[in-house]
Design a protein around this nucleic acid. Sequence first.
RNA 1: GGGGCCAUAGCUCAGCUGGCAGAGCGCCGGUUUUGCAUACCGGAGGUCAGGGGUUCGACUCCCCUUGGCUCCA
Length: 889
Amino acid sequence: METAEIARRFLAFFEKNGHTVVPSASLVAEDPTLLLVNAGMVPFKPYFLGQRTPPYTRATSVQKCVRTIDIDEVGKTSRHASFFQMLGNFSFGDYFKEGAIPFAWELLTSSVADGGFGFDPDRMWVTVYLDDDEAETIWREKVGLPADRIQRRGKADNFWSMGVPGPCGPCSEIYFDRGPAYGAEGGPVADENRYLEVWNLVFMQFERGEGSGKEDYPILGELPSKNIDTGMGLERMAAILQGVDNIYETDTLGRILRRAAELTGVAYGDNERSDVSLRVVADHVRTATMLVADGVKPGNEKRGYVLRRILRRSIRNLRLLSGDESFHMHDLTAVAIDAMGDQYPELRADADKIHSVIDAEEKNFADTLRAGTALFNRAAERTRRSGSTEFSGADAFQLHDTYGFPIDLTLEMAAEQGLKVDEETFHQLMQRQREAAKRDAKAKKLGNADISVYARLLETGGPTDFLGYTESEGEARVLGVIVNGEATGVARKGDKVELVLDRTPFYAESGGQLADKGTIAVDGRGVVDVEDVQKPIKGLFVHRGTVRDGEVVVDDTVHAAIDTDRRASVSRSHSATHLIHSALRNALGPSAGQAGSENQPGRLRFDFTSNKPLDAAEIAHVEEEVNEVLARNIEVQYMETTLDKALQMGALAMFGEKYGERVRVVDMTDYSRELCGGTHVGATGQLGLVKVLGESSVGAGVRRVEALVGLDALRRVSTESALVGQLSEQLKAPREELPQRIDAMVARLRAAEKEIERLRAAQVLQVAGELAANAREIGGVRVVTHRTADGTTADDMRKLALDVRGRLGESAPAVVVVAGVPADRPVVVVAANKEAQHSGLKAGELVGVAARVLGGGGGGRPDIAQGGGSDAAAVETALQAVEQRVAQS
RNA sequence: GGGGCCAUAGCUCAGCUGGCAGAGCGCCGGUUUUGCAUACCGGAGGUCAGGGGUUCGACUCCCCUUGGCUCCA
């Protein structure tokens, strides 16, 4: 049975039994305590925790999950995968054990023809928690399972909690006996490899208290409303139903694995090591594809880093397999998209974007490896030169930590060169880094933002009603007053406060549009200046500001009014953003998708995906097209509809963005149509003018254009126009000829500078012959001292000294001292020939003698040295000092 | 969130404890006339990311800014 069919049957079975089918949530969890969704129940957590009321009492889903804790186990065992899908059915205060157990049994054991999975009842085993007699009774009496196939297990295996105070309870797990070939008799307690866990039923029965660890907490009592949460691993089920030994050989992962084998020329089953690599590649390519599809981009932190690690591990394993450095990710990603596309059609729709992200990372990693290889070779050479055969752990760590060069590659390359690696030191350094990061995270107490105070407000007061599409002010009731993260109920003059209202004209920052500013006033009692508005959780508007006067208390009736000038200006920016988006797509094709934006008053930023920079002509074209649309004065229309309908109408949605069921479409007739919750102008003519400032890079594959809108655009244009006018006047050239004129000037200037340089050098060197001819003899050393004309540069002095030294030859020791004052400080240069150096006259030392006289210091090599000081009057004395020094030797 | 590193010619990078800014490839010119990057000779090309500081002197040391790479959480 194919994976997609298993999922379909599961959902159909529970739908038939009164469950609402809930589509898989994005892997990017809404829950700020989680990086990625790692279990089937995550999207339902607020319901289980009582933070929100579920819109249904029975639900079922197939949830995408990513788990990276045992990423190192992937490929080595038959079950670990970084990406998997959880089938589950959920009950919120509806049925409990007496419902969940028979449902599971029926679906597993009813025949394939009847829509079930067709398991042989005689090969099924279950476990229940130590004292859960209730569950055992249901299994025996309602299901009819023999008592000898029901086993009891302790808290570690069969008791569930979320690790925090809240619901907890016993579990019952269902196992399938794969037969004697897979291990010992005796049920799951004896051998979990032979008896494979297929389904875990969690009974949320009790409330637990504060406590550390998995088993160390008190049970406070029974929950008033009991819930069911079950989980069946789709991949594992597929392996069983497809009669294969491990999940990598199922229909979906198997396709990627076979293609990887083909591409690298390695046969699966050849040897354990390459098999592990092939399984890692299959797993990781799929995980990466799913993550990218949900909008994750490779990066250096958080989810981006998880993705980067997964991608780099697969690329690394591909290189191990093929033994060369060819690129295979594109091909494999295509297979993954195809293999998963039946279940997740959006993969096919977004294939281009997924490819471009993964291909870019593959190239990026190839660069990292190339640079790292060069660094490794240098370090290895250093090691060998020092006579050691051990590559230091510090070097290995630096390669890894600073340059991203994988340790396994270091080990391998070191072995090739006959070097050992000090792995112990390496691991110590890794450990130290981990501890430092943890210590820091703890000290900052960050990472897990506390949103419970907002969740409670949303729970009691419901979502905020947004009036701002039509109103700029209105009456509202205060539902929450938060100071310093706590619901205090009151805020007084000077307090930084967060206010939650039942309805508001304030737009909260989202979709790139900045929040409104304005005031919230309590009649005759107080005023709050609103500086920012955010939605910390979906649907809840939080107004942040300062109490300017008086006080504000929960339940107050207030008058909320936004700064309408600011709003109008931000709206103009937002409308302009849509126009620029359309113009870019017209110019570059549909691959120029939006990757982020920011709409400030009078100014906007638009990020889009593109592999190459826009040239000046393309920018000009986009700008012109946008301004033409302004002149057409297109009316902006809005409609509210379902997500599906909007997409059918061709509205642009943002890649990787999450949308609710009801969406708002902003429409500028034939020119632009986008899903957007932001505010806009009434007609495009109100924008006045859009001036693109330029284009730049944000990161790999993402470009940014920035533009000014309205009066800000006009001001920019007019100041630049004035600037050009001024230049034209200064250069006495018509505007159009300015670039050529400047080019010509720069070229002439350069030529002139070179000519001056040449002439000056010639002039300086003119005296060289004469100086050499007049060299004096001091104690067997030929000595030339010379003071250059003021203004002679240090560089020219050096040239002169070297020239004169050359003319003096090597027949006898020779020392040349040149000093002068290039600007306001004296400089001295000393050159000594080989003979002089042999007899102990080193330029570096001689220059020191002169420089000290000048009130400074100096140094250099034995053959040529340079120094200087601050006393310009002492130049002659300095020259004499060197002569004396020579005479003494 | 906490670290490490990098920015030098069109590209890839060297440049040691401060003292002459370099190589390979590419480009231009010449000779050679070609077995898969033909060889040889010559040449052009630089605000050493930007700003400040220390110093007689900074590509080099220190600080700041900008951009990039990378590890850990």
